[in-house]
Design a protein around this nucleic acid. Structure first.
Lengths: 221, 221
DNA sequence: CAAATAGTGTCTTTTAGACACTATTCG
DNA sequence: CGAATAGTGTCTAAAAGACACTATTTG
């Protein structure tokens, strides 16, 4: 044990890492989706907070996010995007806790059945959340909107293949406003790969279907 | 002491925060400037790494950055922008260390005299740095370029008042390429406040001088 | 006056917005 | 056929790129 200390690397003050107090590090994640044309977020603890957990030793932040989503919301295989570290020393009354905010986009179909206490809420109808989770949510929404502004479906929210109409409906949900059909088509069509197949709706001319280009998957930054 | 444990808030597993191992959290900062028309970065340890330090208890990340810049590079009163958390469990051989990368822009005039071991190096000439500091530097450069793309001087790198020529020269340094005079002027002039005064260079027509609009300061995101 | 820099005008190309028209399908 | 949706063309307005011309100063 004494040897351990002797061997441990020392910094410029001659101290080892163990000599400094360390913060707890949490990850909190805004899981966003578009359901019925509205942007929604997964909340736990009966709608009071975002799913989160403490970072474990030897684990990456992304792994901690995945673990939190699996244990708290029953979701697996997501691809979190890191947003920001919230570091106000008084943000958590339990002690010194940093929170690394994350964003995950999940197709609404995968959020049909949620564990008890977990709810899917429209982002416009979210009340006051615990800690600084309202701030995290705002940041996540802003980021998702920025990601969708110029790309078809960086979060892979749509099942392939999809029509331009379905894609535009998704975008309108994310943006929270109507979009112009002509401009939308001009912007998105060059970034999509046509399947050659058609989708037949209830009425109207059949629509071409598309898939995401192979290199666009997970370019969510 | 037993009471302490009794009183401490517990999580869903009935454990207190103290029961979990915690990582050390460092801040590492790319201090960027434009000197002689070239984008440069402040390196410590004889050019091997970015200035950084460990986060202290009760301190914000921004405060830790300021402390690191003061003690390692003699800089004070900066406004760090948070970039990203680097969390590879093996990134620091000393142990479990997360690094929160930051960006700070500093006018070249304030970097004329640096402590021993601290150097100002062109970003194009930076070799292999310790840890993942090359990644942090790349991210910082990318971010500074994005910040300057559509705004006159979000990092307050220029002394006021300045001419459009001086501003364009700064932008060319940040971007690492020449810019078109007409387009640059059209983009920037509406975002500047004319002083009404003129700057007289060695030859040529006197140039109008400008200051940043009051609300642009520290809009670096 | 020549060189250098600042300021302005304008032509073209590109892009975005707005709208109209045609095409195909279902009930 | 009529309503609904898809696909396409085109006019206009705004922005960006490219270039030219005028204005003012120093040496």
């Amino acid at each position: 044990m004494c040897e351990d200390l002797q061997m441990a690397p020392r910094d410029s003050a001659g101290k080892t890492l163990a000599d400094y107090p360390r913060p707890s590090v949490a990850v909190d994640t805004a899981v966003l989706t578009v359901r019925d044309g509205r942007l929604c977020v997964v909340l736990v603890e009966d709608g009071r907070r975002l799913p989160g957990t403490f970072l474990h030793e030897g684990e990456t932040l992304a792994d901690a996010v995945d673990r939190a989503l699996l244990t708290k919301a029953g979701l697996r295989g997501e691809h979190p995007t890191q947003l920001h570290v919230f570091d106000d020393p008084g943000r958590d009354e339990r002690g010194w806790v940093l929170s690394v905010a994350h964003l995950v986009a999940v197709p609404a179909l995968r959020l049909e059945e949620l564990p008890a206490g977990v709810v899917l809420t429209r982002v416009t109808g979210v009340g006051t959340l615990d800690f600084d989770h309202n701030q995290i949510l705002d940041l996540a929404v802003e980021r998702l909107r920025a990601d969708y502004r110029y790309r078809p479906d960086p979060g892979a929210l749509l099942d392939e293949p999809f029509t331009l109409r379905e894609l535009q409906h998704l975008h309108e949900g994310v943006a929270g406003q109507r979009l112009m059909r002509d401009t939308f088509r001009r912007r998105m069509e060059p970034q999509l790969v046509a399947t050659g197949d058609y989708h037949r709706g209830s009425v109207g001319m059949p629509a071409r279907t598309f898939v995401r280009p192979r290199d666009e998957i997970r370019a969510e930054r």
